[in-house]
């Protein structure tokens, strides 16, 4: 079995984000593997633990994305591909999906595993778009994955009304929730072994994809501004004895905020 896992390097969302002229200030940012993609990789590696399976990881972006690829190799992926082309930056989900689909197309992957969303875009758009471009079935937001004896994949996904048990034929595109579970840590042996694994750099030209299809040029939506959200102000904060606090809250909700009819 052959699996492609798409890994995005994202800015560390716990750190302070500064804006200048509607752009995110790059200085002082730190980067990490998108948490959802880490779960996608873990899902692939769990299949690899059980069956004969080749796991290829793909990341698009500038030189620094090699860090997430190396981490993935150390965690257990077999080979890594860095789609390194200045044209891919600034793309929306649609443009990103074009590039990922162009890479995945025709390479015989049984599964394309992706994060259900990127922690920075919060878009959750790329997975279903890749599936559509490749003409494959999709299952999104999964929290478990196994292969059945007939080759189908059995997943559990979190839907609006609870967890759903969904089976899907290969090849398929599956997006993974970070509730899939903690990803394994790279071991010392893994880190050393990673150095011998292939990390290939490819360009759009290698994929036969025109620059107009990706990045800002290939995007169907444009970001025209960024600002800090106005946010909510803190209200009152009470301390005291339980019974009195309970009474005060009821009084507030009923008579002041008037939200309990």
């Amino acid at each position: 079995m052959k699996i492609l896992v798409c890994l995005k390097q994202v800015i560390d969302v716990e750190l302070n984000v500064q804006l200048r002229d509607g752009r995110i200030v790059e200085e002082g940012l730190q980067y990490a593997m998108n948490a959802y993609d880490e779960s996608a990789l873990e899902a692939a590696l769990q299949l690899k633990d059980k069956t004969d399976c080749e796991v290829v990881v793909l990341s698009m972006g500038p030189d620094r994305v090699a860090d997430v690829l190396k981490k993935a190799l150390a965690m257990g992926a077999d080979s890594a591909v860095h789609l390194d082309d200045p044209a891919v930056t600034g793309g929306d989900s649609y443009a990103t999906a074009q590039a990922i689909a162009a890479y995945a197309n025709g390479k015989g992957f049984d599964l394309v595993l992706m994060g259900r969303q990127a922690q920075d875009t919060d878009a959750a758009g790329t997975g279903p778009m890749v599936a559509e471009i490749l003409g494959l079935p999709q299952v999104t937001n999964i929290v478990s994955l196994e292969q059945e004896s007939d080759g189908k994949f059995l997943t559990r996904r979190v839907g609006d009304d609870g967890r759903e048990v969904v089976s899907v034929d290969a090849p398929a595109v599956i997006t993974v929730s970070n509730d899939f579970g903690e990803a394994r840590l790279p071991t010392m042996k893994g880190i050393l072994g990673a150095k011998k694994k292939p990390l290939t750099v490819v360009t759009l030209a290698d994929l036969g994809l025109d620059v107009s299809k990706v990045g800002a040029a290939g995007s169907k939506t444009q970001v025209v501004g960024r600002e800090k959200p106005s946010g909510r102000a803190a209200g009152r904060k009470l301390t005291g004895e339980g019974p009195d606090l309970a009474k005060q809250l009821v009084e507030y909700l009923v008579n002041e905020a008037r939200v309990l009819a």
Binding site: D122, E132, K220, T221
Partner: peptide, 23 residues
């Protein structure tokens, strides 16, 4: 912007080649 919307919205957008603004 529900689980259904997250699953279906981008798929339909790619099918129709239309812009998609999520959430």
């Amino acid at each position: 912007d529900s689980e259904l919307g997250k699953d279906l919205g981008p798929r339909v957008a790619a099918k129709l080649g239309l812009p998609f603004i999520p959430g």
